[in-house]
């Protein structure tokens, strides 16, 4: 099984948008190694002839009628917002200065 490096864990943390401390990254690299070693067992029986199951119920194309139904008001939807302005969610800057 491929070893997972500390740099790789740091990359995953960046992808997952979690600012991890050095100590956390050290611990997690060790733990990931152990956990991945254990879960890799699935490869022993997952032959090419076995179809995957993504969901316990086989359902396809669950539609509802295309009609407007009651939903949250603006005030309700914004009620948990960390910051708001003019009936909108107020968020930190998304693009840089340049």
């Amino acid at each position: 099984m491929a070893a997972i490096s500390r740099d790789e864990v740091a990359h995953l943390a960046r992808l997952a948008r979690i600012e991890m401390t050095d100590t956390e990254l050290d611990h997690l690299s060790d733990e990931m190694q152990v956990i991945l070693g254990a879960v890799a067992r699935v490869q022993e029986v997952a032959g090419a002839n076995v179809p995957p199951t993504s969901h316990p119920l086989e359902m396809k194309n669950v539609y509802r009628p295309d009609v407007v139904v009651p939903s949250l008001t603006n005030a309700q939807a914004l009620s948990g917002a960390p910051a708001q302005e003019e009936e909108r969610f107020k968020v930190p800057q998304i693009l840089g200065e340049e």
């Binding site: 979690i18 990931m32 956990i35 076995v50 995957p52």
Partner: peptide, 28 residues
């Protein structure tokens, strides 16, 4: 955090088939 990182890894391109894909087969 541990599970988010593990899941992010299992769904990464290059590892998807070996981990998540195999797990789905075990589910079958």
């Amino acid at each position: 955090k541990r599970r988010i990182i593990l899941g992010t890894y299992a769904l990464s391109s290059g590892y998807y088939d070996a981990y998540y894909g195999s797990a789905q087969k075990v589910r079958t």
